[in-house]
Amino acid sequence: MEQEKKEDLRVKRTRKLLSKALLSLIENHSFNSISVKEICEEAMVHRATFYKHFNDKYDLLAYSLKEIADEFHFPDSSLEEVHAKLFNVGLKYKRLLSQLFLEERDSLRYI
């Protein structure tokens, strides 16, 4: 059971490193231009490790967005606290959200 916990922590740590690397890269590059190789270099993990955890960069993005969405869980908060937390989360991920919305808008333009 102890061994199982350690493996869990390693998986969480690796996923967190990869997610953080992706979000860091999105600060300066469009998501479409980012490669798995670049994500791995930024996270300092091997490509094989990446593929043990995620199918592709879209899978990593979905995981990262779910982690961000979890930050929007505000049980027992007042309306003012919810507004403040939403504002802070929005600021924290401003570049990511901007990139994703701009890319989505640009991809819809050609439909």
Rank of each mutant, 00 (worst) to 15 (best):
Q3H: 11
Q3L: 14
R10K: 10
V11E: 13
K12W: 05
R13Q: 00
R13E: 01
R13K: 00
S19C: 06
S19Y: 01
A21R: 02
L22E: 03
S24F: 02
E27W: 10
H29Q: 11
N32H: 01
I34D: 04
I34V: 13
S35M: 12
S35Q: 11
S35L: 06
V36I: 07
I39E: 01
I39C: 01
E42H: 03
V45T: 13
H46I: 00
A48C: 03
A48Q: 07
T49V: 14
Y51V: 00
Y51N: 03
F54G: 03
N55D: 15
N55V: 12
N55E: 15
D56C: 07
D56Y: 06
L60A: 07
A62S: 13
L65N: 02
I68K: 01
E71N: 01
F72Q: 14
P75F: 05
L79G: 12
L79K: 15
L79N: 15
E80N: 11
V82K: 15
A84P: 00
A84M: 06
K85P: 08
V89T: 06
Y93H: 10
L96R: 05
Q99E: 15
Q99L: 11
L100P: 08
E104G: 03
R105A: 14
D106W: 03
D106A: 11
S107Q: 08
S107K: 08
Y110G: 11
